[in-house]
Design a protein around this nucleic acid. Structure first.
Lengths: 133, 133
DNA sequence: GTTTAAAGGATAAAAATTATCTATAATCTT
DNA sequence: AAGATTATAGATAATTTTTATCCTTTAAAC
């Protein structure tokens, strides 16, 4: 039994082949839209329903097994939950990357300045990656 | 002729009453979803079509007269284009606020570290505002 | 005022997402 | 390991969201 099986069960999710494949795809690709996910899944499960993709994505979101990443000008993508991080997106090639940044200074500033208790900071940096300049 | 009339024309948009009202609503409310906008607009223009809202929002986006703000767990909201800024959103009351933060340190770090030319930084801070603690 | 080009409203169409229902498969119990 | 239990997959319909079309009206230019 691989580790995703157990991880899914720990989140009260049955480890179905479809689900394991979704998790596997997200792990391999890093970030995927619903469409992209359906496209790769249909290759493995020729009769998979789009509803199954949606249902599973929503369930996994509720169980914080995965996270939604909202991007300017693009559709949302989904990724496995991991250490808190930010994202870069290349406006030329569309490549999305994780990047771990220390946002403590900013978070602290806002907390004290505005009396706003921050629980989460979502940062997306848009631009041009080194391969596209 | 008020200033929005001229501003719309500068963006090659005819200054129709509906458009002026949309701009006015965005100015007054700061951030509005499509639904919220339609709700207030129907009060002024009892026969306005939802399509008109969508068409205008999309046109104004293309002309960068307004900006879309994508928020975790919420629908997108729209705001008049102004000086670059970040957002806070209260998880209790849903209130969205603008906040001007200096992200230069972070932007520079990423630029040099990852060779990524940043053109835009979208930051949303989720948490609890001072009124909701 | 007349012309013209764009925009509004009504509506249909398309796209995206969610709900329903039944057979099946995963997990639990023994 | 076999049977009982429960959640899930798939098919499909329904709903929601967004866009397109078509014709009439209106803003802006002359």
């Amino acid at each position: 039994m691989n580790n995703y099986t157990q991880m899914l069960r720990n989140h009260n999710l049955k480890a179905t082949p479809q689900r394991l494949a979704i998790v596997d795809m997200l792990y391999m690709h890093g970030h995927m839209s619903i469409d992209a996910l359906y496209e790769v899944m249909i290759k493995k499960f020729s009769s998979i329903s789009l509803a199954t993709i949606y249902k599973n994505i929503n369930l996994m979101l509720e169980n914080t097994f995965i996270q939604e990443v909202k991007l300017p000008n693009y559709k949302s993508v989904y990724e496995l939950t991991k250490e808190s991080h930010s994202h870069t997106i290349c406006e030329k090639c569309g490549k999305i990357n994780d990047i771990i940044l220390d946002l403590n200074a900013i978070v602290n500033t806002v907390s004290t300045l505005k009396n706003f208790e921050i629980s989460k900071a979502d940062l997306v940096l848009s631009g041009v990656c080194k391969n596209c300049v």
